[in-house]
Design a protein around this nucleic acid. Structure first.
Length: 212
DNA sequence: ACATTAATTGTGT
DNA sequence: ACACAATTAATGT
């Protein structure tokens, strides 16, 4: 599939032919396997990624080296904090690790600003995705500050199933615990409760959501 | 097919 | 949070 068709599929707002032509010309694609870091804290940001396929986890790190989950990025998303960095040629405040093999369209930063001026469609796309990420962050903050772990877990499971378009979640309890900043035991026990209530079915490396 | 090992999950304190 | 048991999946023979 060529770049133009790919953009149309994943980012339907960007229909301006002149913009598409420029994107075709200046953007590159980048593919990365699961497990690698897409960007590391402190790295110079040279381009903004538009995710076509795959899943990326964006985290922040505290002085003790603990990771704090900010959000997940899927196909059709772009990274807002990259965006804020790009503007002022700053360095990355976050780490982005690849969860599922990713292909992304890389937009060079100099194009970013120029297109903001030239193309209304691009401008609203940027603004829209920025707002979206911001709202998602607010949700994360609410969740951490105000909710008990059992609610957070259920919320987390539902969100993940929506993002991945499946009710069968693959992964370990430990991974969930890391994302939620709790112990593996707590996650296991809460999941067991949910299973007893008939809300999920558990097996090794797999959680099936039944009725939540 | 079976035994061994490693990883994940469950549970009591 | 820790320690340990139980279960399940992966690997070698």
């Amino acid at each position: 599939m060529n770049i133009e068709a790919t953009i149309k599929n994943n980012f339907p707002v960007l229909i301006d032919p002149a913009l598409l032509a420029e994107m075709e010309r200046y953007c590159t694609t980048k593919t990365l396997e699961a497990g690698y870091n897409f960007i590391e804290i402190g790295d110079q940001v040279v381009a903004m990624p538009l995710l076509l396929e795959g899943v990326i986890k964006v985290v922040r790190e505290d002085d003790a080296g603990n990771e704090l989950l900010l959000y997940y990025l899927n196909g059709g998303d772009t990274c807002a904090s990259t965006l804020s960095c790009c503007m002022e040629q700053a360095r990355s405040e976050v780490r982005a690790t690849v969860i599922e093999r990713v292909t992304a369209l890389m937009v060079p930063i100099r194009c970013l600003e120029e297109w903001m001026r030239k193309y209304a469609g691009w401008r609203s796309f940027i603004m829209q995705s920025y707002r979206l990420r911001f709202e998602e962050l607010l949700q994360t903050i609410d969740s951490i500050a105000f909710k008990k772990m059992d609610e957070r877990l259920v919320e987390y499971l539902i969100q993940l199933s929506e993002e991945r378009n499946t009710t069968t979640l693959l992964g370990t309890h430990q991974e969930i615990a890391d994302d939620l900043h709790t112990s593996r035991e707590v996650v296991s026990r809460l999941l067991k409760q949910l299973e007893r209530l008939g809300k999920v079915r558990l097996s090794r490396n797999k959680i099936e959501l039944l009725k939540l």
